[in-house]
Nucleic acid binder design. Structure first.
Lengths: 203, 203, 203, 203
DNA sequence: TATGAATGAGCCTTCATTCAT
DNA sequence: AATGAATGAAGGCTCATTCAT
């Protein structure tokens, strides 16, 4: 008899993964408040109890979701840091556009930010993760400006915050984009950054 | 017998007003989900029933809140349009900074945007009002650039959206500022706009 | 049109009373742990929410139940205090027997004591009420001994505690008595007290 | 290969023993309702499944616990019966005091009695065992009175029940004693018995 | 008009129990 | 024999809404 496809640990990991993926979809669709454990477990095809077999609490689900998103962001950005000066500009533009195009991801971030603002316990962990992400982006932006021969119009961290803020703010402010039709957020952000660097280079 | 201070209609209008003001405070403080009818009516000094005597439903309260919010923004911006070219720059900066400093107002806008994204009925009215607000701000920004002798780095409407987006995004992204210590959103936005206009003027 | 039978306040009082009566029956039947809000409200003929319209929490229901029982006990015992020395002995015997015969009431007391042992918040209020009841009973027992010409075999408060303890302990230890067939607890307690007083008088 | 330290059967017996000991501690600490399978198995150092490998159900655990508890009482009391008349008084006092001092054991008995009152299946076995225990104690008390030269103030069985009842009732009625500071239950019971015997002896 | 008791649906969480490993 | 992921039935509690007053 062949061994089973999945060991026990792998099975649980699969369940966890499915629950997290379901949570992500549900939060994006219904908001943090609307994302009930019932909805999430049903979306994943499990019973409510399965969530509590895999996570400490509802909040822990979202915290883990957040951790992964941040981690992914940071890893991706860090990879861009290794690029040469000539390709960094296009790479950053591409990344920002991809990020802005992923509405679900942005809405998740917004919902978690909102939750952090009202929930001190959550906030502690949230801001720690956010800080890492911001610092990485700030470093990248700095390199981007150096590569462009322009000088930063303001503190790199403030600029990184601003870039993230625009991305989130634009996602909030527009009706859900029809699928396939990417939001304009990426273009706008890109235009802003390009505006600074090209002008500065000219002067 | 002297006439009562307030007619019946005036009394009801007063109740309505107080309930709306209370709802605004509660949404900003507790979020849309946390703003229960009980909380709102208590904040206004009434009982739950008063809300249902004055509004169709909980959602109707927020719809009215939104309407007034947008109306106020548009009126204020329109007033700035009448200013002369020499004072428009300072006026716009001032308005943006005041807006950014008012965290409650920003959080209310974010909560309403979020609600609009999930609620088609709400969304219909919301986006109509938002469009008006954006157009007004875009017109103002155009005048601002003209007055500065700079040319617009992108479509004025996109720039107006971006300005609003930064304001909302930054408010979301930072822990609640200590009262009295203004958020940096105003400064950042101002720096961005100034960056464009002054550099462009130099070149 | 004749006025309604019950004013609003009276209606609510009626609901409260019915809920408390239901809670009493359910606790006696199912224990504190088994007395769910669902069971209690159904037993009273209301919805679950009715309990929360009338009480702060589940615990508050039982605390109020306890308060009333203690109050009744104290009032009844205090009334006995006013009796002359010649009738106090029979009166106390009668009261103890009546108390012991009321199994529901005893089981309620036991359940609440148990809950108090595990729940500090509840314990605080519980022991305060219990102390009053004990002191009243101790006073009565003292008079009872004086009236009998016997001297107390131990501290009156310890004796009062012991009398209550026997009543509770015997109720716990026996299968539910068939209705109508009174438990022997009353007789046993009476025999113990009589044993002390008559012997002491003889010696 | 040397034989394993424990045969399979011995291993299982050990697991069973550890689970029962853990259950006893947990019930005393958290009550019957609070003694979850998770808590018990963790306290024993096993997982939930171990309980179901060794017992039919949660209730079966407590049934076995009860059986051992009663068996131990009866054995200990029976041992005292073999003592001579001169030492029986001190021995019984000592046993009662030890019993009363062991709050955990008393609380376990109370919890089991409570459970028996609501559960016919459990009750059947419980009352059979309790009867044996009572009869043994009654016999001992009779000898105690005879040894003291006093006559019984009431039926020996009723007195045995009363003694147990006081012990349980007092344990319930007082806040948890600080460890090391013995409860007064032992003293009170002793005083009651001594009161009867010494007075009776004098008269 | 405003009140607030009562409803009923829904939420987060706990837990005895099952069963594949 | 022991594990522990998953289930499913409760349980305590919240809240928008209704309606008699």
């Amino acid at each position: 008899m062949p061994p089973p496809r999945l060991t026990r640990a792998e099975q649980q990991a699969q369940t966890r993964e499915r629950l997290l993926a379901a949570a992500e979809r549900v939060v994006a669709r219904c908001g943090y408040g609307g994302a009930s454990i019932d909805l999430i477990s049903a979306e994943a095809g499990y019973s409510k109890g399965a969530v509590y077999s895999n996570f400490e609490s509802k909040e822990a689900v979202f915290l883990e979701l957040l951790r992964r998103h941040m981690e992914k962001n940071i890893t991706e950005l860090a990879a861009l840091m290794d690029l040469g000066a000539d390709s960094i500009s296009a790479a950053l533009s591409g990344w920002l556009e991809a990020m802005a195009a992923n509405d679900d991801c942005t809405m998740l971030a917004v919902e978690l930010q909102l939750h952090a603002k009202r929930n001190p316990a959550f906030a502690g962990r949230y801001y720690a993760l956010q800080r890492q992400s911001t610092l990485t982006l700030a470093g990248l932006i700095e390199r981007y400006f150096i590569a462009s021969g322009a000088h930063l119009p303001m503190d790199a961290i403030d600029l990184a915050d601003a870039v993230t803020a625009i991305s989130h703010g634009l996602a909030l402010q527009r009706p859900d984009a029809a699928p396939g039709q990417p939001s304009e957020a990426g273009k706008v952000i890109d235009a802003l950054l390009k505006g600074f660097t090209t002008r500065a280079a000219v002067s």
